[in-house]
Design a protein around this nucleic acid. Structure first.
Length: 761
DNA sequence: GTAGGGTTAG
């Protein structure tokens, strides 16, 4: 028996637990409820699998109140409220009378059902038991209404009121964001303990007042590991990873032994830094200290590996966890895959995951949205609301709104906005930012401005979204002015702001403003140089563009040479174009656009042999002209087209219209634009109408639906060429309204046959 | 205590 006792006191992991279990059976002690309860309590602590624990329980012939209490505690820890209630019922069924210890567990785990237990407790006369009373206060403090907690609290005679009751109230007020009440209770309470102080640290961290949190932390008469953890996670969850890691050092130096929670928090702080060296040193420490890695720590490690780019290591942890995985583990792994763009692996996990929650859906939807698969993201969102298993929240909607913006799908966007109000989903800053983005990408600058103006608080992203919108629509002056406004409001422009403003200057031809903006950037990044080269190039200052590029403190990337090539194309500069293109052929050998641009430059100069040479080079290098999808939004649906596409239900009408259009144009004496030379050369090899590229099909569809008076939005991948121009002119004349056409990153607003963007003609 | 969201350029 003595030996058993010494084994029991050393149960540190699941194997020890099994050994103890075996010993107990070996000594025929299994029917002793004392040992069973002890085993179950170890199961709780070590988070043993439920089936193992349940087996233990089931083979106990006459469980007493201690065994039942242990089981209740076990399921309560797992947050399996249904099992807790079931166990409670079984307990009563066995004629075992619940004592005052049982009710706090029940109430804590039962969620809203706890209110029912409150009545039960009063009836059984446990109402004046200090633990039960505290559990009741704690329940109302956590679940609300907090007023009920206060009522029970006030009814306790002064001399019976314990510090735990005060603490429950303090935490409750923080939970319900009554900072003043929490503070007041803290000030008037007759005695405080380490839990009280820690609650204040947690509370101030929750309202993001980390300075106040730190003041309380520094003033604490004593600190437990929980207090350290509270301060640590306060830093970690508010994005102050550096502070968290510094505090962790302090903690170690102070000789405090970190617990599992500490490790989880520190690992998560390390994740947000994404630093593989720091990660490796943390893992070494864990090994040296022989830390038990529970599911939480392992999941945090998984996430850390993934965010440091070690997807394989992350997957190994995921596989090793096996049955111990929880939904967080799954979601972390899914996000790990979407982060690196491996959508297939992510989707595979998504499909096999048991019990998806809203975060699972959000991870997958955001994964598609962030990897250029906006249409799929929206499809998945529709599936989510049809399945009705999880309710979309703000995070879901932010991704969906952004996806609508990327597609330029205004009808869809408006439907999503209606969905928000119908389902009472409130948007915070990022939600409104996504809306600004969506509206400006869809060409509704008025709506974008309205959303921006209606916001109570705006951050740098709000300004950036609107500035980029102005940039895309050629509203240069408004973009420059908005940057001044943001400075006046005390928000500092960041990298993205400058990209937006410089792009705006570029599209509006504001050379001097652009120069000033560029000069004002303290430490211009490579993208800022690219924008500046673009601006100089477009307005025809090609020499200065070239000089700017040569003076860059870093090696120019494809964006810089691309700008130069584009400018050479606009201003028909063969030599400069060749220089830029040759660099680009090294940097992006598979990008067909560069070959086409250079060939266009040659064609414009009448150098047909060179055009032919480029075509040969493409063939030899196996460079395929990228065939993107184009699509038209109509009736809340996206009609997709690809080269030689015949899949559309109105395919015959579309091709008929195309033939008609060409006939009309030929008769009217239109001549093919030189910018389409390479395409037309390629197409001549095929049956002309079959090889028609997707944008022409999209335009034809738009033209067809316009006859029915539909709203037309032609989006994505539109290199507006000769046929398309003519078609768009026809549509907008027909409609007498503004038509927005989007090619990858630029907008073309056609009003009465005129386009705001002069790039292509 | 661990998981998910918004802005960027040729």
């Amino acid at each position: 028996m003595l030996e058993l006792g010494s084994i029991a006191s050393r149960v540190g992991n699941f194997n020890h637990l099994r050994q103890l279990h075996a010993q107990i059976i070996h000594n025929s002690l299994y029917h002793h409820n004392y040992w069973v309860a002890l085993l179950i309590n170890h199961c709780t602590r070590l988070r043993a699998p439920p089936h193992y624990t349940h087996l233990l329980f089931n083979s106990t012939p006459n469980p007493n109140v201690f065994v039942f209490t242990s089981m209740l505690r076990f399921y309560s820890h797992l947050q399996d409220h249904a099992k807790v209630v079931l166990m409670f019922e079984q307990m009563q069924g066995c004629g075992v009378r619940p004592d005052a210890f049982v009710y706090p567990i029940l109430i804590k785990s039962a969620g809203n059902g706890g209110i029912g237990f409150h009545a039960h407790v009063l009836k059984l006369g446990h109402g004046s038991d200090a633990f039960v009373r505290n559990a009741v206060i704690d329940m109302y403090a956590r679940l609300g209404p907090i007023g009920h907690a206060r009522k029970v609290f006030d009814e306790i005679p002064d001399h019976e009121r314990k510090v735990a009751d005060w603490n429950a109230m303090v935490s409750g007020y923080w939970k319900w964001e009554s900072e003043g009440q929490a503070q007041w209770l803290f000030d008037v309470m007759p005695e405080r303990n380490v839990i009280t102080w820690t609650a204040m640290v947690t509370g101030y961290a929750k309202v993001k007042d980390l300075e106040a949190a730190r003041r309380y932390f520094d003033c604490m008469p004593e600190r437990s590991v929980v207090s350290w953890n509270a301060m640590l996670s306060g830093y970690a969850q508010n994005g102050l990873a550096e502070e968290a890691l510094r505090l962790f050092d302090e903690m170690v130096n102070a000789g405090i032994e970190p617990d599992e929670t500490t490790w989880v928090t520190v690992i998560s702080a390390c994740s947000s830094r994404g630093d593989p060296y720091l990660a490796a040193s943390l893992v070494r420490t864990l090994h040296q200290k022989r830390i038990q890695l529970n599911c939480f720590v392992r999941t945090a490690l998984l996430d850390m590996y993934a965010k440091c780019g070690r997807i394989g290591a992350a997957r190994r942890i995921f596989d090793e966890l096996g049955a111990y995985r929880n939904s967080v583990t799954w979601n972390a792994m899914i996000s790990a895959y979407t982060r690196v763009g491996d959508l297939d692996s992510a989707k595979e996990l998504f499909n096999t995951m048991p019990g998806r929650n809203v975060v699972t859906w959000n991870s997958m939807i955001a994964g598609y949205a962030q990897n250029g698969q906006s249409a799929v993201a929206i499809e998945l969102f529709k599936e989510m609301i049809t399945a009705k298993k999880s309710t979309p929240d703000e995070v879901t909607m932010v991704s969906v709104i952004s996806a609508c913006g990327h597609l330029g799908a205004l009808e869809l966007g408006n439907w999503v906005v209606r969905f928000l109000t119908e389902n009472q989903i409130k948007l915070s800053i990022s939600g409104h930012n996504a809306m600004i983005f969506m509206y400006s990408r869809c060409g509704s600058m008025e709506d974008a401005k309205r959303v921006f103006q209606e916001m109570a608080t705006r951050d740098v992203v709000s300004y950036n979204a609107l500035i980029s919108g102005f940039a895309a629509h050629g509203h240069g002056v408004e973009a420059v002015n908005l940057m001044s406004t943001m400075k006046e409001c005390g928000i500092e422009p960041d990298r993205v702001t400058f990209i937006g403003v410089l792009t705006a200057c570029s599209h509006a031809g504001l050379l001097e403003e652009g120069r000033k903006v560029f000069e004002s950037i303290k430490d211009p990044a490579i993208d800022h140089y690219a924008c500046m080269v673009d601006l100089l190039g477009r307005v025809g200052e090609l020499e200065e563009a070239k000089r700017t590029m040569e003076r860059m403190p870093m090696e120019p990337h494809a964006g810089v040479y691309g700008s130069l090539l584009n400018a050479s194309c606009i201003h028909k500069q063969v030599e400069l174009g060749e220089l830029a293109a040759n660099k680009l052929f090294e940097l992006e050998p598979d990008n067909s656009g560069n070959y086409i641009l250079l060939s266009n430059i040659y064609a414009a100069a009448g150098r047909w042999k060179d055009v032919e040479r480029i075509r040969e080079a493409m063939k030899k290098g196996g460079v395929k002209k990228t065939t993107g999808w184009s699509w038209v939004e109509y009736g809340g649906k996206l009609h997709k087209f690809i080269v030689a596409d015949r899949s559309h239900e109105r395919s015959d009408d579309i091709y008929q219209l195309l033939i008609e259009l060409r006939k009309q144009m030929r008769e009217a004496g239109y001549i093919a634009d030189k910018s389409c030379v390479l395409r037309d050369v390629e197409e001549e090899e095929k049956e002309e109408i079959v090889g028609t590229h997707s944008e022409k099909l999209a335009i034809c569809y738009a033209l067809l639906v316009s006859e029915a008076g539909a709203v037309i939005r032609v989006v994505k991948n539109l290199r507006v060429c000769w046929d398309c121009h003519t078609a768009i002119k026809m549509i907008s004349k027909l409609e007498g309204r503004v038509i927005i056409v989007r090619d990858n990153n630029r907008f073309h607003c056609f009003n009465d046959g005129l386009c705001s963007c002069k790039d292509y003609w």
